[in-house]
Structure formats: C-alpha cells, structure tokens
C-alpha cells in the first residue's frame, strides 16, 4: 500500500492559538479518506495545510511536516504542490464571470498544459464527462458558470480540478450546501473517482463518512482521536470520544 499523504507531528497555529496538535496521519493511495469531526475542530485547516493553501492566511503557521509521496510539500514550490493536490470547496465556486467551458479550461490555459485548441477541447470534454456533468452542459458550454444549479456548479468545480490532472483531490465539505439529490450525485462521483485518484474529504456528517469512505479519521478540538478503516471505526470504535461522537452525544 502506497502512502499518498503523510503528516508528521503536524501542528498549526493561528497567531498564538494552536488549532491542530501533533497530528500524524498516513493517507493511502486510491482511497476515499474522510476526516470527520464537529464544526470548528480544525478539519478545514488541516486540509488546507496539505496543499499549502493555508498560506493565503497570513496568521497561520505550520510546524512539523506534510509529505506527498514521501517528499515534503514544504520543500516544494507551492504552485507545484497545488497542481498535484487539487481542491474542491464547501461553497460551489465556479468563477462567475467565466463560461462553463472557460472554468474548466482555465487551469489548462494559464498553466500552459495544452499545446492546441483541439487538445484543450478534448481535455475539457474529458473532465466534464469524468465529473458526470457533460450530458447536462454540452449544449450550454458558453453560458456563465453561475447559471448552473448548485449541484451542477459543484460538479463543474470538480471538473475544473480534474482538468489539471492532480493525483489527489481535497474536498472541504463538498455537499454541505447542496440538496440531498445533488449531494448523492457528488457522493457517487467520489466513489467513481477513487479508482484513479486519492480523495481526502472533510465532513461533519458521520453518516456521509460511513457511506463513502474507506478510511476515516476523527478529529476533535484539533486532536486526532482515532483513525482506521471506516468499517472498523464505525463498528468498534476504540476511543470513548469517538463512540460518543458516533452516537450523537457530542457534536
């Protein structure tokens, strides 16, 4: 089993506040790895340290290490890290001033990843198909991304990330703002994508973690309480806190 992402004694601070305490995680390749925990436990912060997006926040400081296939992301150029580790956000955020097509093409064009228009069209179509969106938007590629429904927007964001062909996709509560039917489509898509990619998904819903993940980590107040195969953690949690979280006693 190859390890895609590994954190070593990871500690994260906002100013003087320590929000993540000594997290050691190993995330295997080609799985859906869920990080669950109550709101404010540091899930999103932890996720953003993997692709160094946390650096957009000038108050955040990271100690310890995050390794991508054995190599420290903090020794790499953040641009390179983010091309290998894509991200989908809680709020579906296609660029509202760009068409559906341009949203997907943006990363390819600006990163000079394609040589010709033909190749660009091919990859955009491929990404939209992979994101299970092609059939719904193939007639409206030139409409603005903001004209789509909430669920379609989120799949457009997934297509936008897929187009630059990352190895890993981080998802920060991707269904939190969606209706149940749209959420189900995204969940199906996630299970489909893990054949080729590693997916790390943050969720505040244990039910969602149980439905879609192979591995799950439980984070509480910045501490990693328990981690393991999803089935094992849900059927036989080792820690009292995990048990309480899964039975709804803490949230």
């Amino acid at each position: 089993m190859k390890v895609a992402i590994e954190t070593v004694n990871l500690r994260i601070y906002y100013g003087r506040n320590r929000v993540i305490e000594n997290v050691n995680l190993k995330i295997p390749e080609n799985v859906v790895f869920a990080i669950m925990g109550p709101s404010g436990c540091g899930k999103s912060t932890l996720l953003r340290s993997f692709n160094r997006l946390l650096e957009l926040n000038p108050n955040a400081r990271v100690e310890g290490d995050v390794r991508l296939y054995g190599r420290s992301v903090y020794d790499m150029n953040p641009i390179e890290v983010r091309r290998k580790i894509g991200m989908v956000f809680q709020l579906p955020n296609p660029f509202p001033h760009m068409s559906v097509f341009d949203n997907v093409a943006l990363g390819l064009k600006l990163n000079s990843l394609v040589k010709s228009k033909k190749e660009l069209h091919k990859i955009v179509e491929w990404a939209l198909k992979k994101a299970a969106l092609w059939d719904e938007v193939k007639e409206r590629l030139h409409e603005p991304g903001s004209a789509l429904s909430g669920g379609q927007k989120q799949r457009l964001c997934i297509a936008r990330v897929l187009a630059v062909k990352p190895k890993i996709i981080l998802m920060d509560e991707p269904t939190a703002n969606l209706d149940p039917i749209s959420a189900e489509k995204i969940e199906k898509l996630i299970c489909e994508l893990k054949k080729e990619l590693t997916i790390v998904i943050v969720t505040h819903s244990p039910a969602q973690a149980a439905r879609i993940s192979d591995y799950v980590a439980f984070l509480y107040m910045g501490k990693l309480i328990e981690v393991g195969k999803t089935k094992e953690v849900f059927e036989d949690p080792k820690e009292k806190l995990t048990k309480e979280y899964l039975t709804g006693k803490i949230w």
Binding site: E80, R82, G86, G107, L110, V164
Partner: peptide, 10 residues
C-alpha cells in the same frame, strides 16, 4: 474565489 484560483496551482 481567491482560494479556488490559487488551488489550481496558478
């Protein structure tokens, strides 16, 4: 949107 743009490796 800033996060989304940086997240693409731009």
């Amino acid at each position: 949107y800033r996060e989304a743009a940086f997240g693409l490796g731009l």
